[in-house]
Every structure is written in structure tokens, then in C-alpha cells.
Design a protein around this nucleic acid. Sequence first.
DNA 1: GTTTAAACGCAACAATATTACAATTAACTA
DNA 2: TAGTTAATTGTAATATTGTTGCGTTTAAAC
Lengths: 147, 147
Amino acid sequence: MAQTLHNFHFEDLLTRHHLKKTAPRLRVLSMMSSRNTATSQPDLESVMNDIDRVTLYRILSAFEEKGIIHKVFDLNGTANYALCTSNCDEGHHHDEHLHFNCTNCKNVYCLNDMQLPAINLPAGFEPQAFTLYASGLCPKCSKKAVK
Amino acid sequence: MAQTLHNFHFEDLLTRHHLKKTAPRLRVLSMMSSRNTATSQPDLESVMNDIDRVTLYRILSAFEEKGIIHKVFDLNGTANYALCTSNCDEGHHHDEHLHFNCTNCKNVYCLNDMQLPAINLPAGFEPQAFTLYASGLCPKCSKKAVK
DNA sequence: GTTTAAACGCAACAATATTACAATTAACTA
DNA sequence: TAGTTAATTGTAATATTGTTGCGTTTAAAC
Ligand SMILES: [Mn+2]
Ligand SMILES: [Mn+2]
Ligand SMILES: [Zn+2]
Ligand SMILES: [Zn+2]
């Protein structure tokens, strides 16, 4: 996480997905990759406050469609966005990892390594995707709590 | 589900939680208990369109605080509400069951019997609650799909 | 350099949610 | 049973989040 990705990586990413390289898009990618947690819509909006809100929404939905980022709602129903690390395809994500929502700092962590256990459902239900959330204290906040 | 609950049950419920028995509250309880799926905020609002929106929000948050209902966001981030069946306490829910969101009819099902498997997290994370969602086709919609 | 589809910015609007305060009423008490 | 009061409701104003339509700009292709 917080791996040092350079601008040409993002430019590459955009080209591969047939998206024009534009300043707003590169900024969104750069911001997201600089964090080790997902970024909430309000955060995005305040940091990118010189980019039009509509443009931001369009960038986010384009990225999501292309499989570049995924959207996850936190416990308060707020949208959070994070880069996909699991080679998601256009229109087909497979980010079935655990999301951890800290009740203290509100951050949403993508725990990419945590695979979901097998779940079986009552007869009749035909599941296509699973999402697992955990909430509680993240490492930083649990340390503070000990003090 | 869709168990025939009578008005005096709800009145009882309200008294037990030190909530005044009012028409809007009884109607919300009655509506929710008549369904076997969670009720979305838009649904609630349109069915209860003669109750003020603010009142509705206040009823919902009061019920949630008291452990009478629980709130679950569907895949689109829309709030859905369902009665608690797991003896939730004031300020402390334990509705850790699976929620199934049908991609066709959009209904949210509380699968109260499905317990979550044990999940272990990376070091440092201190989970307090888990939430598991599945999406796909519900029994009704999967039947239709076969035709 | 020209062309053009894609992307952006702006304005208007829709949906969801919250806050402040005045009016009403369910529940308690005398 | 009437009177009192805190809880609840209604109303208005505002905030936040998200969408749509349309004119302008620009990255990319030729
Ligand atoms: Mn994630
Ligand atoms: Mn439920
Ligand atoms: Zn935290
Ligand atoms: Zn269905």
C-alpha cells in the first residue's frame, strides 16, 4: 500500500482503458494511490474542490465501470472509493475482499488478502456476489485506545 | 415471517421501550411486520406519504436506537429497514445475519438463520461487528428466470 | 494543422437527510 | 376525570449527495 506509483503509470492505465489522459483523472488516481484506505466521496470532493462536482462523479463512475476502482458504502451509507488490486475487468469486478470500517477514525480499509469463506444459502437463493464488512477499531485507533 | 402480529403487540412493544403509542409509530411497525423483506426508505416514504418526512426519520432513528429495527444499506446505498428478531438491546444490536439483495426485484431479505462463519483479521484490527451481504437472484426471481 | 468524439464546466434539478422551533398530544398525576 | 408536562409531531429552512441537459473545451487521431 502507498506504493510509490508514478504519473506515467496512471497515464498508462488510462490509455489501456481507452480513457483520455486528463488532469482531473490523473489527480484522482494519484490521490487514491497515495492512501492506504479508501477515500470517501466527501473527502474527494473537498480535496478536489477545484474540479467540478459533476466531473468528479463522472470520473468515478467511469473508473468503476472500467474496473479501475471499486465503490464501497461504509456503515453510514457514505460512498468510499478505492483502487482495484485484483485485475478487475470492464463491467466485471472481483474485489470480494473484506472491508474494515473503523468506528473511531471512520476509515475504510480494503483487506485484499482476506478471502471470504464459503457461504451456503437457503434453497432458492442464487447468490452471484458476496460482500463482507467488519467494523471496530483499526490498528492505529486500537493502539491509541490502549494508552 | 409475515407472522400475524396484532396492534396490541406493537403497543406493548412501544411501552416496553418507553415510547409513546402514536399513530405514525404503529403504522410503521405494522407495515414492516406485514412484509417478509426489509422496507426501503423510498417505499416507506411513499406508503406513509401523509406522515411528515421528518417524523418518519425520527421514528426510524428512535426505533433503531431502541433495538426495535435495524438499518441495512443495499447495494445502491439505499437505506432499508427491518424489524429486529434477535432481541436487540437499546444501543446494542446483534443482527449479525446475512442480508440478501436481489439484483432483479431489489428486495433485501433478512436471512436470520444464517450465522456468519468465524473470520480472523490481520493483526491490529479489533472487530466488533460483522456484516455479510449477498446479491443475486431471490427465490421468486430465480423461478421467473427459469421460464 | 484539422477534425472530432470525449471530457469538462455550468446551471438546474431531484432525492435524501438534518436542524430549529412552534403546535399538539399521550401519559402521568392530583 | 381534568390539568400538567415532557414527548412527539408538523412546518420551514437548509445541507448533502447525486443526476440531467447542454454548450464549450481539448486530447487524440488523422
Ligand atoms: Mn476494497
Ligand atoms: Mn436484517
Ligand atoms: Zn481507526
Ligand atoms: Zn428478487
